[in-house]
């Protein structure tokens, strides 16, 4: 019940660690929980015992011997304080120990992913030794199973914090300061993460997904992402491409292989391959996409995406085009 209560939707729980980093955090959580539970039970038991004993004495008509009670009281307070100090020191020690074991980055050259926090979405760039191997996506991190992954964290505007509880602890993304965090996903699956530092109006709707998949599947995905957007062939899609390139979209978004190259909004080169839009707010369906383009301020009030009043046939063409961006 406890685990169920703490678990959000879709694999987002500290208590279901899927990697070595998260396992350490989970162990620390259990140490703190067990200790606190034992202390609670002992305290409540002592209280119950004391209350019962006092009541019995009163019923028997015994009087409290104050000269004997005084040193007993002193002894109890001393033991109580000592126990509290020891437990707090134990917590502090465990915390520092876990912190130390979490920080060293694995010596083996890990897959490096640059994650940049924006209000209110995540820019995800895969670093590569050659420039043509580099690619950018948004709000979705694909990683191979069983391999260490290094996240290089930066922020564009304000402080954000990345937290994928099944895989690693939190780490702040601070403007002008590069941080790093590593994790390893041991089981394939979909893990939800979110911003854990209040970052403005739509902080609550700033989520991301980590997709852990076997090495071959990951490489297939990465190869697809490295390619520029495919050319629109059917007339409706090419009309949609024209709407995109001549309208307001190009002011903020980029699509590789076209003249759209602005990077203040998410890169849309492979938009249709993503599971969600608007940083995990909506499923990536045609209807959701239409609602998001026309009236984003109803879905995420204050978001930097402006409303776009398009003619119905233009919107339809634009949606068709965006859905070809696999």
């Amino acid at each position: 019940m406890l685990q169920g209560g703490l678990r959000g939707a879709l694999n987002q729980s500290v208590l279901e660690a899927s990697g070595p980093q998260a396992a350490k955090v989970e162990r620390l959580w259990w140490i703190a929980f067990t200790t606190a539970a034992i202390v609670y039970v002992l305290t409540m038991g002592a209280l119950w015992f004391a209350a019962r004993r006092a009541r019995r004495r009163e019923l028997r008509g015994e009087l409290l011997d104050e000269t004997a009670a005084e040193p007993r009281m002193t002894r109890a307070v001393t033991w109580g304080t000592a126990a509290t100090l020891v437990i707090l020191l134990l917590f502090l020690g465990a915390d520092l120990l876990v912190g130390r074991t979490l920080s060293p980055i694995p010596k083996k050259q890990p897959l490096t992913i640059e994650v940049t926090g924006h209000q209110w979405w995540w820019e995800v760039a895969y670093a590569d030794t050659s420039p043509h191997g580099r690619f950018t996506t948004a709000n979705e991190i694909h990683v191979p199973v069983g391999e260490p992954v290094l996240l290089v964290l930066e922020a564009q505007d304000v402080i954000h914090s990345i937290w994928v509880p099944n895989l690693a602890g939190k780490k702040d993304l601070i403007p002008g300061y590069t941080q790093s965090l590593w994790f390893q996903a041991d089981t394939a699956g979909l893990y939800r993460g979110q911003c854990a530092e209040f970052c403005g109006l739509q902080h609550a709707k700033m989520a991301l997904q980590v997709v852990a998949e076997p090495r071959t599947k990951y490489e297939e995905w990465a190869a697809g992402q490295q390619k520029p957007a495919q050319n629109a062939t059917d007339p409706v899609a090419s009309r949609g491409r024209e709407v995109f390139l001549t309208g307001t979209c190009v002011m903020c978004h980029a699509i590789e292989g076209t003249s759209a190259g602005s990077h203040v909004g998410p890169d849309l080169t492979h938009l249709a391959s993503r599971r969600t839009i608007a940083a995990g707010t909506l499923p990536n369906t045609r209807g959701a996409l239409a609602g998001w383009i026309v009236d984003p301020q109803r879905i995420k009030p204050g978001v930097h995406m402006p409303p776009n009043q398009l003619k119905p046939q233009d919107l339809d063409a634009l949606l068709t085009y965006l859905q070809t961006l696999k």
Binding site: T248, M251, P306, P307, N308, Q309
Partner: peptide, 8 residues
């Protein structure tokens, strides 16, 4: 014209 929404 046509590149920035009126409100902006």
């Amino acid at each position: 014209a046509g590149k920035i929404p009126t409100q902006q």
